[in-house]
Amino acid sequence: MSSSASEMRFGMVIDVDKCTGCGACSVACMSENNVGVLPDETDKIRSITWLRVYQIDNGQPYPNTQIAFFPRPCQHCAGSQGHHTPCVSVCPATATDRDPKTGIVSQIPTRCIGCRYCVAACPYHARYFNWYDVPWPEGMDKPLSPFVAPRMRGVVEKCTFCFHRYQRAQNKAFTSGEAMGEMDYQTACTEACPSGAITFGDLNNPEHKVHELKKSPYAFRLLERLHTDTAVYYVSAREWVRRQADNYLSGEKLAKVQAGGGH
């Protein structure tokens, strides 16, 4: 078992071979989670994108060039083999923690003191710092969702696997008396993806699709050798894509690194 076992472990399996890089997941995420917009978003150090879609290519000359896309939400690391969730272990304010029940790494902006230690610790660039207050001018604040509190300057924010949707699904389960099903809790990006590249569910639950999908021989995770034991799996039949998931030496064989044991 991994060092931080949890009852449930929500996670994703993202099919890179289906992703067309259209950015629908990213925008759906921003709209769902009240992510702010700054006047200059070309400054990527200060631009906040909980779910960023990275483009990679195989580096081959014309006409053998190929590109692929990596949608990157927070990886919700558990940490294995004595390693911790990188951000949680460094936070001096306990503004981020890993929920033992769902395996989701939380972020509480109002508790954050803005030291950005977690931003530095995250190997996936999944954490973002609010360098400015978001202006929300002239009606931009109207479509804000009441289910996620807008952030203020000086705090860190990141993907929460739409935990508020889990809460709402749980509310429904409590009042209706019916157990929460797989489809009752889905993240905004999963729902939005027009090519169905993202599958979301409880990795520990054999009834959920992700449980099977993550066992694909083509499944891999990002930077597995750091023993972060992430909850986001990627799938690609293309070897050059899988190779870019970690820092392999040029001659090194792409071996499937089994980190985390339990999963």
Binding site: D97, P100, K101, I104, S106, I108, T160, Q167
Partner: peptide, 10 residues
């Protein structure tokens, strides 16, 4: 009841 922070924070 032992819960994570975001059970009460959004």
């Amino acid at each position: 009841v032992r819960d994570a922070c975001f059970v009460c924070h959004k």
